[in-house]
Amino acid sequence: MVQTANSRYALSIENLTVQFGGLLALQDVDIVVPPGSRYGILGPNGAGKTTLFNVISGFVKPTKGRVFLHDADISKKPPHKRVQYGLARTFQITTLFAELSVLENILMAALVQAGTSQVFWKPVHNDKVAVSIAESQLHDLGLMHLAGKAVNELAYGEQRLLEIAVALASNPSVLLLDEPTAGLSTAEIKAVVRLVTNLPKDLTIIMIEHDLDVIFDVSEYLSVLHGGQAIAHGPADEIRHDERVKEVYLGES
């Protein structure tokens, strides 16, 4: 794990441009995220938010620009290497392992943290370190009662919580949440917000979210994307009153 205390920014993005064929998905985007902050990415559909996440986590190669995690340049690293730098993410569409149990889903992440993901000579359930990482993760999030259930037996809201739990089990210093409340009921949204706000203060959280109440509730800082460009950055309160932002985004909804 890379040390987090000394670096100025948990994540910084420099001059990022992504081009798909003739389409500019992102254009000269600069974002800096202070350590331990709750950072929201706001923007209408097609603004480039998910592309931004895919670049940060390594699934999309940028046409231009760089990504730093705690001052380390991770632009060229493949997705699985970025986990070692303290990065974890959730997905918009739930991509949990449907045939495995809740515990096994978390175990998949915990094994990497325990350094035992290469073990092939003993049953995975005998791996005391990894199992205890996974169990304490479930315990901390109050999901222990679900441990033995298969994922396809879970309610959708529970699956979204598990999605976050799996990412947390990677023990990240920077966590990317891609629309964690999409498709949830009001009560379920509350559960997700409660979970996110109760996470350790030293964890940096960057979140894409459509629900404005949620994003203003949770984030301290915001960046607003529009048409692939970052048109505003700043503390949440300022952004709320920014005229340009009102025009392109808040005005629409």
Partner: peptide
Amino acid sequence: SAVGMSFMGVRGSDTRMSALG
């Protein structure tokens, strides 16, 4: 084992698997 379970993970979602390291 852990490796055997990771095979099931790759079958389920390889994007998720690389995101987990």
